[in-house]
């Protein structure tokens, strides 16, 4: 079976990333800026976790090729 490039959306690490409980420094600029956006929304009522995961997942899918090292660190196996 071929391994998919992006870890499944129901993995808890996605929640940790958007709530910034997991402070991972991505190598990719757009992911860094997106995580910064989540950090700024933290503690405000502006953050919708499901929507944030959708947005991050969509971005991760687009840039999956360049994110493999980051995914390896964050998700280990999928």
């Amino acid at each position: 079976m071929t391994k998919t490039l992006v870890p499944p959306k129901d993995r808890k690490e996605w929640t940790f990333l958007v709530t910034t409980k997991l402070d991972h420094k991505f190598q990719n600029l757009v992911m860094q800026l997106k995580i910064m956006e989540f950090k700024q929304k933290k503690g405000t009522d502006k953050i919708d976790i499901m929507q944030s995961i959708d947005e991050l997942y969509e971005l991760s899918t687009k840039y999956a090729v360049s994110l493999q090292n980051d995914f390896q660190v964050i998700f280990k196996k999928w």
């Binding site: 420094k25 991505f26 190598q27 600029l29 860094q32 800026l33 995580i35 910064m36 950090k39």
Partner: peptide, 8 residues
């Protein structure tokens, strides 16, 4: 001046 944007 430099500001850290989550790694950037």
């Amino acid at each position: 001046l430099i500001c850290d944007y989550s790694g950037a």
